[in-house]
Design a protein around this nucleic acid. Structure first.
Length: 386
RNA sequence: GGCGCUGUAGCCAAGUGGUAAGGCAAAGGUCUGCAACACCUCUAUGCAUCGGUUCAAAUCCGAUCAGCGCCUCCA
């Protein structure tokens, strides 16, 4: 049991790390929070929000007058609908009541409790761990839109009935991913994992793709869209690489245009922040990045001072850093073949000078075979892997 | 059946009352010996459809159509 969960936790972290998702400071586990879970259930019973029936503890949804406030559901309508659809559980006072503690079933793990051996219901653990590690009121609670009801609704009912305080100030519910405009499901055969996608496209492209839409909106997934994201991301990466090369080889001195250029560069941050402040509008924020890229590419062509170029680079890296992309670009570590590559490039430049283009192209092909792409720029020949 | 979300160019997508950002793709051009990168030009009298309100609507209201989520176990 333990080994199984360890395996999947490790696998999940593998993908999360790949996507550059930062780890939380605490990753609690339900099995290690049993005393607190039992304590909270007892509090709910004591406060009159829960009742015990033969080893099972139920939450009394009618006792919590704001039940349904998150999902904008009306309890009376819920009850009416539930009575038609759900075979009534005799022990429940109301069809919408949910389990806080359930008795052990044969073969299942169990824990001791005042109501008998058993295990927690599926909502209480979240209220317990949230309270323990984050406090009675949290600022932001996130989750998939499918969890709004009943899970998040029940968390509110449990936590607020215990503390008498607001449980979460903001709720962030993300939309679902569809595949070729169809819901992802095993039965439809269009089900695949982050790991499988990562075998076709880098994690970074996946991250950029997800950021290209608003998190609350449904997101359609397809190879075509991933390819488009890869192309767009390459544009940003090309810009960063060109700019780095420009800075390394720039001879343009500080000049009168610097202050205006730097003012413009700072304007992209303002635009970026405005978008992000609007409910994490990453799609709009990326626009600011593209506009900065355009600005940089034009300036590289026109020529601008090293000082301004460095300011632009810092800004580009900062914006990309917030988005969590272009983080591995620090891989400017020495390439093992550096000397060989630069010797070949020098030979090609010689050949070009001698108008021996056949020889020059042969060297370019040789470099390509090594995985090296070269770019002729005004400042010289730039090369990179990939 | 009920509640909620969504529908903007070939594709993705921002824009929630003041006259349609940005990206990808395609096309033409500039640069280049060629190429790659880049740059320039071009792409919606139009925002699912039909009505309504308003001086003004993608944005507000109503109806309709389509997709999705939830209303049940599980999280």
């Amino acid at each position: 049991m333990q080994a199984v969960s360890e395996k999947y936790i490790a696998e999940a972290f593998h993908d999360a790390d790949g996507l550059n998702v930062k780890r939380a400071t605490v990753h609690p586990r339900v099995t290690q929070e049993m005393p607190e879970i039992i304590e909270m259930i007892q509090t709910l019973i004591d406060n009159g929000y829960a009742y015990v029936d033969n080893g099972t503890v139920y939450y009394d949804t009618k006792a919590f007058h704001e039940y349904g406030k998150l999902s904008k559901k009306n309890l009376d309508e819920l009850l009416a609908g539930a009575s038609e659809r759900v075979t009534a559980d005799e022990a429940k006072k109301n069809p919408t009541d949910f389990v806080l503690w359930k008795p052990q079933k044969p073969g299942e793990p169990k824990w001791e409790s005042p109501w008998g051996d058993g295990r927690p219901g599926w909502h209480i653990e979240c209220s317990v761990m949230s309270k323990k590690y984050l406090g009675e009121t949290i600022d932001i609670h996130a989750g998939g839109e499918d969890l709004i009801f009943p899970h998040h609704e029940n968390e509110i009912a449990q936590s607020e009935a215990c503390s008498g305080k607001i449980f979460a100030r903001y709720w962030m519910h993300n939309g679902f991913i569809t595949v070729d405009n169809e819901k992802m499901s095993k039965s439809a055969g269009n089900f695949f994992t982050v790991r499988e996608i990562s075998e076709k496209f880098p994690y970074e492209v996946m991250r950029f793709f997800i950021l290209s839409g608003h998190y609350r909106m449904p997101l359609n997934f397809s190879d075509t869209l991933m390819q488009a994201s890869q192309n767009g991301l390459d544009r940003i990466k090309n810009c960063a690489a060109s700019l780095e090369y420009y800075i390394a080889n720039s001879i343009t001195a500080e000049n009168a245009e610097d202050s205006e250029n730097i003012e413009q560069i700072n304007g992209f941050m303002t635009k970026f922040e405005t978008a992000m402040d609007d409910d994490f509008n990453t799609a709009d924020a990326i626009t600011a990045v593209y506009e900065l890229v355009k600005f940089i590419n034009v300036k590289i062509k026109e020529g601008f001072s090293k000082k301004a170029a460095e300011a632009a680079h810092k800004m580009l890296m900062e914006l990309c850093g917030i988005l969590g992309i272009l983080q591995n670009n620090e891989a400017a570590e020495e390439d093992g073949d550096k000397d060989k590559i630069e010797a070949l490039i020098a030979k090609r430049t010689e050949a070009k000078k001698a108008k021996d283009f056949a020889a020059a192209d042969a060297i370019r092909d040789e470099l390509a075979a090594m995985g090296i792409t070269i770019k002729d720029t005004r400042q010289g020949v730039q090369w990179f892997r990939g």
